[in-house]
Design a protein around this nucleic acid. Sequence first.
RNA 1: GAGACGCUAGCUCAGUCGGUAGAGCAACUGCCUUUUAAGCAGUGGGUCCCGAGUUCAAUUCUCGGGCGUCUCACCA
Length: 504
Amino acid sequence: MTVIYQRGYTMEDESVLIKIRKDKLREIREELKINPFPYKYDVTDYSAGIIENFEEYSSSGKIASAAGRIMALRVMGKASFCTIQDAEGRIQLYVAEKSIGEAGYRLFNKLDIGDIIGVKGAVRRTKTGEITIFIADLVLLSKNIRPLPIVKEKDGEVFDAFADKELRYRNRHVDLIVTPGVKETFIKRIAIIRHIKKILDDKNFCEVETPVLQPVYGGAAASPFTSHHNALDLRLYLRISLEPYLKRLIVGGMERVYEIGKCFRNEGIDRTHNPEFTMLELYQAYADFTDMMSLTEEIITGTAAALNGSAKIAYEGKEIDLAPPWRRLKVVDALAEYAGLRVAEMSDRDLEAGLDKLGSEIRGGFNRGLAINDLFKLLVEDKLVQPIFITHYPAETTPLCKPDYDDERFLQRFELFINGTEIANAYSESNDPILQRKTLYEQSLRRDVDKEAPPMDENFVQAIEAGMPPTGGLGIGIDRLVMLLTGATSIRDVLLFPTMRPQE
RNA sequence: GAGACGCUAGCUCAGUCGGUAGAGCAACUGCCUUUUAAGCAGUGGGUCCCGAGUUCAAUUCUCGGGCGUCUCACCA
């Protein structure tokens, strides 16, 4: 049996809600002779500005010209209210037939939540005190035919939130419209990046762009995405880090370079990992890793202060104080302090047994340096809540870093931890070409046992052979920094379009 | 990769100890010249994720599958 729904429609194929809106669209075109999709509108006033400068508007009788999306409608006989949302926020409109005319009110009666309109009118308070545009002119700028979730809010309490996270990520355009705070998070993200760029630009760093598509990838240990160039019949990889090309620029004499860009790693997805993510990497000639520490403090503290007006941030109920200087602690000392392990005095067998007890083993066979690194990751990392530079990682953890002055088993490297998460990673960069060729070659041999070890990059080694000045390098995970500074607990909340499995 | 939980109206959610389902908002109709989470009144709206099994009968129970969320593991 066919069920007759509203306006004679049945509940088949397309949603009845959409059909009804398409009808209204047709009626607006054919009966009202109005183009529902005009080309432009002269917007001179915005919601927040109107509310802020209310006295000026009301005393002068200045006519506001605003545009926005209808978020609430309270339609009554000949005088109605609606609320529109624009780039700055929301403002109420008073829509009276006697002000906008019969034709205008006929149009208004065909409007839905989600439509975009332009309005002109004086700004006054209503009887109940709400600042409102009393509109004298109404223009439809775009007709909505796919209804939005109706989210309501009063005194910070949200009713009928658009709560299904999957739907929110898949339909970020809807999420941005209806979920309070989402747009603000992304505006903060933009502000953070802008601030970091300003700090670096002021220090005469050059922002550069390096290849995303690379014949050989490197600079980290990760599985790459693979692509193919048809005309060259060439396998290309999406970069897993920015490092190899930025260092070529240091060799080339660009003494301070940075790039903020996407890197891609073909790995799992979780709360802190997305297959594509944004990294800042910078390289400064004639600097070492201690210079990178100061710069890291300056970038992160300065950005937090610019964003929140304070060096203290609240994250997951914890208070984190970003005021520098931050503590510096060697990996082996951190293991002693936080896990009671004196690794320097432990035999290889003891280390292996310790790892085994934690259910961990080294890919490609036991290796003392990697064992110490793993013990640190498993036992210490998540205890590092306040900002701390962990320094002097074992030499086996990376081929791209200079060994320390008096103990070659450890590197001039640090990672910054805040709230148990790695936020930054920095080195005194390796520039001894003999050593660099050796360590990269050895790393490439590990590919047999460790799929994530990158292949040998001959062109990169030749660049180092041309002579690279002593250089400090720093990488900061922008997504995680944004999470920290915005209080987001999932990387998906700071990515406009997180990677999702396609539907159907 | 493991575990927990979830999938019911456009949205947020109830519910059925097995008898094909409800609320609020949205929608539709009527009334209405100052409302505000929602003006007032009324009306409609469902492949209860998919498949198999048990049963007279499955949205509900069992098994399998899909998708998702969270936690843990992995991840230089």
